[in-house]
Design a protein around this nucleic acid. Structure first.
Ligand SMILES: [Mn+2]
Ligand SMILES: [Mn+2]
Ligand SMILES: [Zn+2]
Ligand SMILES: [Zn+2]
Lengths: 151, 151
DNA sequence: GGCTCAGTTGAGAACTCTTCTCAACGGTGT
DNA sequence: ACACCGTTGAGAAGAGTTCTCAACTGAGCC
């Protein structure tokens, strides 16, 4: 049930929309696709600074990807806004509150039913939801335990 | 099921923790408690500027309230970070994507079960979740329909 | 009430984050 | 290869957020 395959054929998406797929866009995409944890825009810009990707481009591109539905926003344990790669299909993130490692899962506790109920009770026309689950990943639990020398 | 009573006795909370409850803190609290929609920090600062509340204080206080669990963060339709008053007990927000009106509800599709499953599958130690449901409120649906003169 | 003191406040400066500008550049289709 | 048009990046500009520190104020106690 966890980690639905995260492989968008991004190049095809761009081509199909007639948007140029540049070297910078590829590099930014690879940064996210190759990461197993959420990153802020600033972190992304830092990581790619040496590789000939300007920060204005990183800001523009992350927003573009997000608008195209190729990236998803999540909040980390400190409320910082981060992005993660391909939430292909319907999925939600399980985020490590310490290191931001993300595991995607599909399936939620049948929110469709809840949404129908809410819509009926409130008159709102429901169009979506946002679910994030927070936890501490195994390796951060480990680290935490080791640091626990009677503190 | 919707709108669990939102009345924290905030003064008691402060007193009990030995933190001074100032005029400014009261005003900021009343701003949120009296609102039926989410507000950004900047909006809050603007609203209270005339009433002798400095913006530094608004930033500090919203963060303080949030840390004390007296306010909850939500994202609006544009991804802007907003805050809403007393999510007393366990509840989640239904947010209007247009005007940010918020209705709180308790009950989620039994995420406890989902969390147990996720914890078992991934080894994460789950400590919480964040659920927001998005919709268009009745009055914004109305407005939208009126503006729909063949556009 | 009045006293004391630690915690709070606010104007403005400083700092950080994000967007803009515009000339050079580089995908894309032919 | 060529031309076209969207993209890029350095630096500046603009927002948004935090900091500084002297003046102030809530809270506990006579
Ligand atoms: Mn879902
Ligand atoms: Mn819940
Ligand atoms: Zn971790
Ligand atoms: Zn609305």
């Amino acid at each position: 049930m966890t980690d639905p395959k995260p492989t968008h054929d991004i190049e095809a998406v761009f081509h199909q929309k007639g948007i140029p797929f540049t070297r910078q866009r590829r590099q930014i995409w690879e940064f996210f696709a190759g990461a197993d944890r959420a990153a802020t825009i600033a972190e992304t810009a830092d990581a790619l600074r040496g590789d000939g990707v300007g920060q204005a481009t990183v800001y523009r591109t992350v927003q573009l990807f997000n608008d195209l539905g190729l990236l998803a926003r999540v909040q980390d344990g400190q409320g910082e806004l981060c992005y993660i790669a391909p939430p292909i299909g319907h999925s939600h993130p399980l985020v490590c509150g310490v290191c931001r490692r993300v595991i995607r899962f599909d399936g939620d506790g049948d929110l469709t039913e809840l949404e129908a109920l809410l819509g009926a009770e409130t008159g709102f026309s429901i169009y979506g939801h946002h679910l994030e689950v927070y936890g501490i990943c195994p390796s951060c639990q480990q680290t935490r335990r080791e640091g626990d020398d009677g503190e």
